[in-house]
Amino acid sequence: MLSDITLGQYFPGNSFIHRLDPRTKILATLIYIIAIFFADSFLSYAILTGFALAVILISRLPLLMVLKSLKPIMIIVVLTLGIHMFTAPGETVLFTWKFLSVTQEGLELGVKMSLRLMLLLLFSSVLTFTTSPIVLTDGIESLLRPFKKIGVPAHELAMMMTIALRFIPTLLEETDRIMKAQTARGADFSSGNLLQRAKNMLPLLVPLFISAFRRADELAVAMESRCYRGGEGRTRMHELLYKGIDYAAFGTIFALTALLAFLRWGTALCAL
């Protein structure tokens, strides 16, 4: 029952996007997000949307699956659209209903803001769809390493994520087992209202926590026996390396950003 949960939303594949270094993908996502904020005309939004769709196409992900990842933010998108539509100041009134009026400027702003949100989420979900959690962890560790000097525990964070990824299925299995053991002795996890059900879960948590602590203890001893002593002097089996395709990807994303910057400020610059 609990065992069929998949971790993250990684969609295995071997496309150009899949093969990129995780650091490239993380950085490109960040740059894209910055580029979104450069956009102000509909032309630039069209370019951004086109780029996102092209990336999804190249990654050979099912388009519908990627679009589904927008579901959780749809409420926020609709809300953003509504608030901008009705409250933004503007001259050209499209129509009025009682005290609410919709202006063209408001409508445009609303559409742009909603697009911004959707593109943001769409592009970052391509990152998690095409990168396995383990590889993603490696990428984050490598990117955070320079910040070690200012006290960012890069290796420790990555180790925590690795161990969490390793133990989530094990703990889920254990939860399942404890639930079955308690159901066999008359516990009820499936009836009653929400509050009642939450209360019934309590006896489940105690044994689960005790076992998790015991596991942590044993794991720590096992790690120490295998010479673990933190990130200092540690090497990796698969060192991350930027390859040709990574430089190509960086080139593309920088070109996109430059184009958007030009569309926004270019005319002003030319006028100077």
Binding site: L219, A222, R229, M237, E239
Partner: peptide
């Protein structure tokens, strides 16, 4: 269960050599 660190077999076996600083290709 409580002595396997990584979520992929190969990565777990590499854990020890990585800790003592064996160079990547040799690992």
């Amino acid at each position: 269960d409580n002595q396997i660190v990584a979520a992929i077999v190969e990565e777990d076996v590499a854990f020890g050599p990585e800790n003592v600083g064996v160079p990547g290709p040799e690992i």
